[in-house]
Write a protein that binds this DNA or RNA. Structure first.
Lengths: 195, 195
DNA sequence: TAATTTTGGACCGTTTTAGTCTAATAGTCG
DNA sequence: CGACTATTAGACTAAAACGGTCCAAAATTA
């Protein structure tokens, strides 16, 4: 037997592609099944519903992004580089997930609880990550700030504010992203770096 | 009254975007209507069926490509430049229409007559375009060939053969296209140019 | 072999779909 | 204005597609 979890994973991989491409409503369970080269009931053997799959996809992608951010941050040397790594990795990762989150936003409006839940959980995690970077920076006397928690909240909020233009305009996202990234880093470091 | 044909045109424009993005079956008439900011019955006032719209879209895009090729060819100076312009314009135009023709190929398999009809018509036109370029080249003693018609057929066929990798692999289409374009021109001119 | 996991395919109630119909509105022209 | 036509929205229908279930068969394991 091929491990059940592995098949679950590959279902999610297939589903993620199709959901990203076609959205929630235009994706059918038969599409996913066909993408797996299996019958529909096989899919229902691993998942309870279409919505379950979508939620699992979102959570998986979010988790993957989180892991990537954490590993990239931990590899960077020094708080300043770490903060930069966090911002870059977060923006890059988001760029890949724009479509998926667009689906979440536009087709799951009724499901406020799920969207909120996702947001709250990720917000808390992100704030913690940023805060620990800031703490390290303060300890090393590289960052100069009064309250690392509030600053972390501010940074994460600022980045979240950038999701909107990223999500809304998919046309010129690349140029927009490149332009704003340096400026964003400047702004962030301007208020934080000891001069 | 805004000209009826203009509205038809803008319906085709909207429909082309949605068909390109979602394919034939995943595009609903309500999608098109919503894209026009109108009710569904308004669309049926201008077209008889969903299939009609799709056919009109394909024919329009094909016609536009044809016009672009012709104008680009007529602007180029000399047979050699003309032939190059034809190849480039054709490949570029096709690159934009890959998805649409993918839809035509994968979702209209049953409608053999339509697909064949489209193909035959465009083939004939293309061969004529290329042939007239070749004729000019022979007249100018730049190209050296026995039979311009057969050569035109060969060139068009060769280009059609390149559609397949273009259509099949959408992932690395750009790099593939750039790489093959120069080589293709080399090959074409190798057999044709007087040395 | 027997027990268990996994699958295909028929099936069901519901929703969505392409397409129609009609009545209302907007626009035209004498 | 008033008669006429062009255009629209929205309710409607029959058919198809949909998410999801069921069960027997196949495959896997032991």
């Amino acid at each position: 037997m091929v491990n059940k979890d592995e098949i679950r994973e590959s279902v999610l991989k297939v589903a993620q592609e199709i959901f990203t491409r076609f959205g929630f409503h235009k994706t059918t369970m038969d599409d996913i099944a066909r993408g797996m080269g299996k019958g529909k009931s096989s899919i229902y053997y691993y998942f309870n519903s279409k919505e379950d799959i979508f939620r699992a996809v979102v959570e998986k992608e979010l988790g993957d992004l989180r892991n990537k951010i954490i590993s990239s941050v931990s590899e960077a040397k020094g708080p300043k580089e770490k903060l930069k790594a966090y911002v870059i990795e977060r923006m890059q990762g988001l760029r890949n997930l724009v479509n998926l989150f667009n689906v979440l936003r536009t087709e799951f409006i009724t499901q406020r609880d799920f969207t909120d839940q996702i947001r709250m959980k990720t917000d808390e995690e992100e704030i913690n990550i940023v805060r620990s970077i800031l703490d390290e920076g303060v300890l090393d006397r590289i960052f100069h700030l009064e309250d690392t928690f509030l600053t972390a909240v501010a940074i994460v909020t600022a980045l979240k504010g950038m999701e909107v233009p990223l999500v809304v305009s998919q046309v010129n996202k690349e140029s927009h992203l490149e332009m704003t990234l340096d400026r964003l880093l400047d702004v962030l470091f301007y208020g934080i770096l000891k001069r």
